[in-house]
Amino acid sequence: MNWTRTDIDSRLDRMTAELKTSLQRRGISDFAMVGIHSGGAWVADALQQRLGKIPLGSLDISFYRDDFTHRGLHPNVKPSQLPFEVEGAHIVLVDDVLMTGRTIRAAMNELFDFGRPASITLVVLFDIGQRQLPISADICGETLALPPHQRVELRGPAPLAADIIEMTPE
């Protein structure tokens, strides 16, 4: 199974509309968007193009992973860049694929080390289940129920496309 550029674009359009409605309903007009490196940052870029000029940052959560001592430091860690004040800000956190929830937990921990946001809204392109933590997305492009040996892999940065890939057992 795969998703072409058109498939992804239509999901991003719908997510943008839903995000606008959700923020409006909660009375939020000023917000900043944060993409999780690397797929989440691509999706955040694509959403920003649809939303117009909003502050955009990126997080690399490698320093916050809970499996660091098993896997070591990721060889290609990128600096986190949040070119706005996190303290008191409404943050839209963006990732490409939501699975166990551990990445989102790490990202929220990192965000709080920059300041105390007024709120965090989670936006993901795919939710593939297999959750291990009580975390859910506020806005989601597509929900899938994949068996444990399958993942969705996003290709980017532009244009975006996605495939289902088989995991080789470790």
């Binding site: 660091f68 060889p75 290609n76 860690v77 990128k78 921990n109």
Partner: peptide
């Protein structure tokens, strides 16, 4: 390369990561 990403931590207001 690892050091390059840690330089950014030194620029934060809270200069700490939980590694």
């Amino acid at each position: 390369d690892g050091a390059a990403s840690f330089v950014e931590v030194g620029d934060r207001s809270i200069k700490k990561v939980p590694l």
